[in-house]
Design a binder for these strands. Structure first.
Lengths: 206, 206, 206, 206
DNA sequence: TATGAATGAGTTTTCATTCAT
DNA sequence: AATGAATGAAAACTCATTCAT
């Protein structure tokens, strides 16, 4: 009876894309052969479930990110207070970046003019209300902790983007040609957390 | 004055790549035909100057970014004091993001496992000492204004990455599927500037 | 009354092919999916009754044409005299051509070197004696009206082909790139009828 | 200096298609690999000259037919009088049918709803004024021999189509499942010629 | 018996790269 | 030195056919 939560072939494609990505593949040069081989299904089968290669990759990123974000959000609710919840979120996201998470990649693809990016935008624009994406995690946490009326739309969006930008900042450090080997991750993480939390408290509680 | 190190054919390729990018092309799907057509040279000629397509694109991004960064750096020196210089830098970079600057794209490509990204990393690792890249702008500005010994390596790197993350934050707002239409850019910009400058002053002057 | 020789599934396939053809499909690019979807049966079921796709299409054309020819022949017998019977036949065939009849298509496929054409030839060569095809309609009508010995084999074949060529002639006018808009169908039809009947009477009655 | 009349690669493709057809290939199932292999050029080269496979085949048929028709027309001018010219034309066309000429095939493809057919129609609709196709041979011969005002548009079109239908009639006899082995071609040819010439004379000179 | 999900061989098409001119 | 015609390897995608259910 576990077929209901694992529609088999679609999920196999998603898993294959995510696995290939984590193995270091360049998503914009992935081939259908690679994907279906990794998924363990025939090439033609993929086309029974997706209209083209871009849809396979875009949906894989979308659903993988959505699943991760839901997990992060639910986890954050176990904590009390905004600062603690934010800490939990940041730690979760940092770990994800560390393992080449799709969240990081998704943001990139959304901005690179690629076909995959266009497909992703379509998916995000038509996503169901109960799907939680990166921005929703921040938005929900903020409104749950500070109340819905406590902040202007502009400040809210600034906070959301500012928080997400810290994740990118951290992720960048792995590919930065200026080596960061002397920079302990803990110190970096402490500074990022400190900065984002204070900013949120000032803008929202003040 | 031996500009022969950078003859016109190479430069034509660089300009073509940058132009195509600003016209909305997906850099990872650019073709050699597109590049040489835009550059106004023969396809074969490109191979007299570059070993392959990836080198054309990687070098175009590298030199375009280096030129822009030098300009930003020199411009920032016209200002007095860290805060004023940083303001000048941020304004410059924000403008660049607004025009789909390669700086923004370069950061993405460095993290997408692509062949172009690998080439870019090689270029950055072996770059001449007098080439100023994104990080160098921040590093030089900080050391010139606060003195070389005034800050730990960790804090320095944190500041560099943190500053660059603000650029990404601003850029993200253009492609964010959650509409930012109600969020005025000025307000966003003010918050970004305020945040980065205060952070720098606290860490370095304090 | 054992209609089991032609069970409903086979007939469904035949009807599907004919319907698709009348809807404007290119018979040599029809897919099994299209056929079985239109027939309302499963794809695998089709292979319980036919050995391959070509057989489905060839048999559909064959039986459809045979049914039509039988109808035409029986109808012509209601008339008295060769000229009247021929008129009836021509009118019938012209109508059929107007609705994209398979008779027209059948002639094409027989001459295009396609696999479907090869199958059709096999079917026609081994057809049961009581199956009436295009040529039989003419042959029977001629012998019934003029008597069996009244005409040489060559003249008979000439008349058969000549008659059929009028149908093609009329059909061609629909797809002729040289516009026929000024040419009224009635005038064309009158000329065709006149010509074929006089020719037959001259050769056979004379 | 003979490069001007043989633009090499395009012509090689045309020749390959025609050769394959004469060798018995089904034009609607021809592959690009077959065509380029027969043409002795690389597969990619074909796409430098044609936008897709259908264009290759449609243009091959079009230009082959145009060349043949020009030849037929010029040859017919060597004869004196309508009947003699028509005889020459019929003989030419019959020979062409005998060698599986594209003329025969072209008429078929124009009526089979295929993509190749659609392309052919486009080519014929936009053909240059000096290109002589099948219909033009008949039209020119008739007007040159009888004068332009001597016949209504309807009668002209009837004559053109009627004549062409005889060619099809003759061609059909090769694939007719009712064997024509007892029917001498000469007798058939005589009857066809007789019929078409008398019809033309009656309608035009009368 | 009937099905349609799964397959992979076979097709079209693209494009980085070469090389004769 | 410069070119762009030619190439063919590699990719996306299709669809006839099979077979487990």
């Amino acid at each position: 009876m576990n077929k209901t939560e694992c529609p088999s072939k679609e999920q196999a494609i998603y898993n294959a894309v995510i696995t290939l990505f984590k193995e270091g593949a360049d998503l914009s040069n992935l081939t259908v052969s690679q994907i279906t081989a990794k998924a363990g299904i025939g090439k033609g089968t993929a086309y029974d479930y997706f209209s083209d290669k871009e849809e396979m990759i875009a949906k894989a990123l979308f659903f993988n990110t959505a699943a991760f974000c839901k997990e992060v959000y639910l986890s954050s609710k176990e904590e009390q207070g905004f600062r603690n919840r934010m800490m939990r979120i940041l730690l979760y996201m940092e770990n994800a970046v560390g393992e080449s998470s799709c969240i990081f990649r998704l943001v990139h693809i959304l901005t690179d003019n690629s076909t995959i990016g266009k497909r992703l935008k379509e998916l995000m624009e038509s996503k169901p209300a109960d799907t939680i994406m990166v921005e929703d995690v921040m938005r929900l946490t903020i409104t749950e902790e500070f109340g819905e009326q406590s902040v202007s739309n502009e400040k809210m969006l600034y906070l959301i983007n500012s928080s997400i930008s810290r994740i990118l900042c951290y992720g960048m450090s792995f590919s930065n040609p200026y080596n960061l080997e002397n920079c302990r991750n803990e110190e970096m993480r402490r500074l990022v957390c400190q900065s984002i939390c204070r900013e949120a408290e000032e803008l929202l509680a003040g």
